[in-house]
Computed example of a mutant assay.
Amino acid sequence: MRLRDPPDSRSFPRLGGERVKSDRHPKPDVEAALKRAEKAGLKVKRDQNGHRWGFVICCPCTAQTKVWSTPTSPGTEGKKIDEFTRRHSGCA
């Protein structure tokens, strides 16, 4: 499986180093995991398309994981993001 190139960082709106309020995930468990991913040095990209909310991207190795806007289980979605963060925190 070939991964797409990470999106251009200039297209990601920033406000004082954090995501803009409208870019926050509606599920608290998922939003907390996204904040932990950002703190670990990964990039969180809002790119809504259908049920997809966006991506968590590891820029050095170009790996990415999808984040869903309507996950079946927000807790499981948060754990998936935390696992991706743990595996790629050494890259960032």
Score class of each variant (00 low, 15 high):
residue 17 G to I: 09
residue 21 K to E: 14
residue 8 D to T: 13
residue 36 R to W: 04
residue 79 K to M: 11
residue 49 N to F: 14
residue 6 P to N: 03
residue 90 G to H: 11
residue 57 I to W: 12
residue 47 D to I: 07
residue 54 G to E: 00
residue 74 P to I: 10
residue 5 D to K: 09
residue 1 M to A: 09
residue 25 H to P: 08
residue 83 E to C: 02
residue 64 Q to F: 05
residue 49 N to L: 15
residue 36 R to V: 13
residue 89 S to T: 11
residue 82 D to M: 01
residue 26 P to M: 01
residue 82 D to F: 04
residue 45 K to A: 14
residue 6 P to V: 09
residue 73 S to H: 02
residue 33 A to W: 11
residue 60 P to H: 12
residue 44 V to A: 07
residue 42 L to Y: 06
residue 91 C to T: 13
residue 25 H to R: 06
residue 70 T to H: 06
residue 44 V to W: 03
residue 11 S to G: 12
residue 34 L to F: 03
residue 19 R to E: 13
residue 33 A to P: 13
residue 88 H to N: 06
residue 32 A to C: 01
residue 78 G to N: 05
residue 49 N to D: 15
residue 24 R to M: 03
residue 47 D to E: 14
residue 30 V to I: 04
residue 17 G to A: 07
residue 28 P to W: 01
residue 13 P to G: 02
residue 90 G to R: 10
residue 57 I to P: 00
residue 76 T to I: 10
residue 6 P to F: 06
residue 56 V to M: 07
residue 16 G to S: 07
residue 34 L to C: 02
residue 60 P to C: 12
residue 4 R to D: 07
residue 78 G to R: 01
residue 90 G to A: 12
residue 92 A to H: 11
residue 34 L to P: 04
residue 52 R to E: 06
residue 71 P to F: 03
residue 43 K to G: 09
residue 32 A to M: 04
residue 22 S to R: 12
residue 89 S to H: 05
residue 73 S to W: 03
residue 75 G to Q: 08
residue 65 T to P: 00
residue 52 R to H: 08
residue 72 T to W: 00
residue 48 Q to R: 14
residue 58 C to N: 08
residue 7 P to V: 14
residue 14 R to W: 07
residue 65 T to K: 08
residue 8 D to M: 07
residue 26 P to R: 06
residue 59 C to Y: 10
residue 3 L to I: 14
residue 76 T to V: 06
residue 86 R to T: 15
residue 23 D to I: 05
residue 54 G to T: 04
residue 76 T to P: 00
residue 76 T to L: 09
residue 1 M to C: 03
residue 14 R to L: 15
residue 50 G to S: 06
residue 56 V to L: 10
residue 18 E to C: 03
residue 1 M to S: 12
residue 13 P to F: 00
residue 35 K to G: 08
residue 53 W to P: 11
residue 74 P to A: 02
residue 39 K to A: 15
residue 43 K to Y: 13
